[in-house]
Design a binder for these strands. Structure first.
Lengths: 194, 194
DNA sequence: AATTGTATAATTGTCGACAATATGATTGTT
DNA sequence: AACAATCATATTGTCGACAATTATACAATT
């Protein structure tokens, strides 16, 4: 349940559906999701730890403001480090099933880019990158998520859907060929600050 | 309350007082801290997000195992990036009060090194580095904590107290002189994987 | 002795309620 | 009109209890 609330809220925040610095109320969410406030608290706490929300004791949580340009650049750098490391240590154990999973995600992304559905693009982009990081290490995934989600808060300004789509296709292609060098290049090209 | 539980547990885990992969039970902790289980859950969730504990749905949390050597190297690199960025954007607004706070921490560290009190060393080391990261950005602090705590899980093998002490003194000295280049060098020297 | 099945105990996940704190509205004073 | 004080409402923090799930212990079977 917590994960569902987290995913829904994270998606909305990253898609810019909730304004920056706006308070997020436990009771409203509890009503909306049909659960008790405690369950919502758990989700809000998780999202606070991820950096999507900012927690203040006794005052609840607010939506994080987007990172500064400097911070975004740092996040991009950190992400590249983590994702390249992940590819380095996982590529040799990549399976056909992994290929299939990535291809499926790429297809979803492709359709979303054609339909200019920003929310799905953001979610799928996240899921694709998350795939290789998660394959490397669950701990690393958690670190990566905290960085990536912060960075993607500003993603709502995406202005070139086709390029986004092509970049991800290049990553998937390189991985399918087990070409680490090409995969790293493609990832680095995709992860840059806006 | 949550913060107190978090700090206590984090300290114990980083000091190696709880074995890797050992389950951490809500009820035991609730009894120990004299609070309800819900309050403990919050703390455990936070520590899970930090990477100190590993959460499994319906099965509770376990103490994380230390990072692999490769991962430690990555964490050290990520930490250096974050801490240098933090110094870059904060050094120009560093105050006398900041100097005083850092000096106080350094003194605590010095005494702990003389007494070979590993727990206090770990906590103080963490607090010193956290100081400049937190000064840069609350969001960045949260990302940094997830990385640093993971890295410090293996810290219990510290074998040269005096070197640790001298390295931190060098950082504090460089900051007090507002010498960014020297501060960055000193931080980089201090942050290396074991 | 080793394996499987069942019951019991331990633990987690979620609930609603009460206490504590913060926020907003209203009233009083200058 | 502007500011301070007070009160009412909204919200968070924490509690203990019940439902659901997992782990452990014990009995039965091979």
């Amino acid at each position: 349940m917590r994960q569902q609330i987290c995913d829904a809220l994270r998606g909305e925040i990253m898609a810019g559906e909730i304004s920056f610095n706006q308070p997020v109320r436990e009771q409203n969410l509890a009503k909306r999701f049909g659960v008790s406030r405690n369950s919502v608290r758990d989700a809000l706490l998780q999202l606070s730890q991820e950096g999507v929300l900012i927690y203040s004791p006794n005052c609840g949580v607010r939506v994080s403001s987007p990172p500064t340009r400097k911070e975004s650049r740092l996040y991009a750098k950190l992400r590249r480090e983590i994702e390249m490391h992940s590819l380095e240590i996982t590529l040799s154990s990549w399976t056909k099933e992994d290929d299939g999973n990535l291809n499926r995600l790429q297809r979803i992304l492709s359709v979303a880019c054609e339909q200019q559905d920003l929310k799905v693009i953001t979610e799928t982009d996240l899921a694709m990158h998350r795939y290789w990081v998660s394959k490397a290490s669950k701990e690393l995934e958690s670190v990566w998520l905290g960085i990536t989600v912060r960075m993607l808060i500003a993603y709502s300004q995406l202005d070139n859907y086709m390029q986004c789509c092509l970049e991800h296709a290049a990553i998937v292609e390189a991985i399918a060929c087990r070409d680490l060098s090409a995969a790293k290049k493609a990832v680095a090209l995709n992860i840059r600050s806006k």
